[in-house]
Amino acid sequence: MSDTRDSNQGRFVSAEAVAKLAGVSRSAVSRAFTPGASIAPATLARVHAAAAVLGYQVNDLARGLLANRSRLVGLVTSDADTPFRAQMIAALSHALIERSNVPAIINIGPTAGDVANASRQLLRYRAEATVFLSGSPPASLVELTRRNGQPLILINRAETGLDSVHCDDRDGAQQAFEALRMAGASRFAVINRATPSSSLSAREHAFVEFAAASGFEAKVMRTGRADYNGGKEAARRLLASGPAPDAVFCVNDLMAFGALDHLRGAGLRVPDDVSIVGFDDVPVAAWSSYSLTTLRQDPRRIASEVVSILDRRLANPDSPPTSVYFPVKLVVRKTVRARL
Rank of each mutant, 00 (worst) to 15 (best):
P103M: 02
A104M: 12
A104Q: 06
I105K: 00
I106A: 10
N107V: 08
I108Q: 01
G109C: 02
G109V: 09
G109W: 04
P110H: 02
P110R: 00
P110G: 02
A112Q: 13
G113I: 07
D114W: 04
D114C: 05
V115G: 05
V115H: 09
A116R: 11
A116N: 07
N117K: 15
N117W: 10
A118G: 06
S119G: 11
R120H: 14
R120L: 14
Q121N: 12
Q121Y: 13
Q121I: 14
Q121S: 13
Q121E: 12
L122P: 00
L123V: 05
L123T: 05
L123Y: 07
L123R: 07
Y125V: 06
R126Y: 04
R126A: 05
A127L: 01
A127Q: 03
E128M: 12
A129N: 09
A129L: 06
T130D: 09
V131E: 05
V131P: 04
F132C: 06
L133T: 06
L133G: 02
G135A: 08
S136A: 14
S136E: 15
P137W: 08
P137R: 13
P138E: 09
P138D: 09
P138G: 08
P138K: 11
A139L: 14
S140V: 11
S140F: 02
L141V: 13
L141G: 06
V142N: 01
V142C: 12
V142H: 01
E143S: 04
L144S: 13
R146V: 02
R146C: 03
R146W: 10
R146M: 06
R147M: 02
R147L: 01
R147A: 01
G149C: 03
G149I: 00
Q150W: 11
Q150P: 09
Q150V: 15
Q150L: 14
Q150K: 10
L152I: 15
L154N: 12
